[in-house]
Design a protein around this nucleic acid. Structure first.
Lengths: 188, 188
DNA sequence: GCGATACGCTACGGTAGCGTACTGTTTCAT
DNA sequence: ATGAAACAGTACGCTACCGTAGCGTATCGC
């Protein structure tokens, strides 16, 4: 979102990096509510004054940090929809188990329920996460593997919904057999 | 969870009811983080001293209030799995759109990510919500509408996951066509 | 080298929240 | 009627947090 701006003072870059790193850590540990500017300052070693020089408020810092959570999306191309979907879901399961954003995301979802700014940020994050799924489904439609009439968003929900459900609501394990069951159901 | 205890002082009952009612209201409005004991006291008209007589801490009050969110579960019996599932999902969609717990649940999910007590409460709530689904699926298995080998939890996740996904993550509308798509996929 | 900029440090002011102590009053149960 | 229990009101102490001000120092770009 915010670029290096071509020529950025080394000191600024260093400070921002340190602050964002510590913000990530606190986000992963305590969610959005667990981030305190005082503590970010104390642990990162960057003065609170400096933090407020770069972000106008705690809220701005949080949005900036959260909006960088999404990893670079990668759309596989195994040759078949089933193979692509299996690759995507396996990768997603791995992320849900290990990635930091997996424990932060509920905070964002909760905050988006009441804060408009957070809501647009979450929408962008969501679009980033879902992009590879949409790409794969679009390709499958082009090859005729699934009918054109099927709504894109429906297929995405059928594929990803059950995983999210297990990770955050049911708190159950997600094995390969479950992934296959999802694919069987969604690409029927 | 906490019973009328056979003979409960009218004053106690009245105080607890007023406090819980206001706690609900603040929960629906601002989530778990939006509940303040001082404000519950001020608006409900029940003295803070009294609140702390009945709940040892703010956390205890929150857990007590949240654990009562679940409505009485109702398992329909239309004669077919498709009919039952359609009834359940339609009702769930309506709840997700209008019920108070729909805006509170993300808070609980987030809190459960880090607090063990909240986690067990959420597990109980989840079991209550899913009970009618399990009943319907079990009946369908008995009638041979779906094979016995299919894991119960998989079917539940395939049915409910896409709806939760739409409500909280994708923030998209849920119409009857989508419900049919889910049922087609899950009961294939 | 030197001016400009970023930075650290310390100390505030202000707010909000939790949980407790104390005192006097109302309401219940018998 | 009377003792016991629950209650309201108020005032605290404590902690945590946000955001700002003032001042001196270090570091960058040129």
């Amino acid at each position: 979102m915010s670029e290096p701006a071509q020529t950025m003072d080394k000191r600024v870059e260093r400070s921002k990096a340190k602050v964002l790193a510590e913000t990530y850590r606190q986000l992963a540990q305590g969610g959005i509510a667990g981030v305190s500017v005082d503590e970010v300052s104390r642990i990162s070693g960057v003065s609170k004054t400096t933090i407020y020089r770069h972000w106008p408020s705690r809220s701005a810092l949080l949005i900036d940090a959260c909006s960088r959570l999404g990893a670079t999306p990668v759309a596989p191309d195994t040759g078949s929809l089933r193979g692509d979907a299996r690759a995507l879901l396996s990768h997603l399961v791995h992320q849900l188990r290990t990635a930091n954003w997996s424990s932060v995301y509920p905070s964002i979802i909760d905050a988006a329920e009441r804060d408009a700014e957070l809501q647009t940020m979450q929408a962008a994050l969501h679009a980033t996460f879902m992009a590879p799924f949409k790409a794969v489904i679009e390709r499958a439609k082009a090859k005729g593997e699934i009918p054109r009439e099927r709504a894109m968003d429906d297929v995405v929900a059928l594929l990803v919904g059950p995983l999210f459900f297990r990770r955050w609501f049911a708190r159950e394990e997600m094995d390969d057999r479950f992934i296959d069951a999802i694919i069987d159901a969604a690409t029927r």
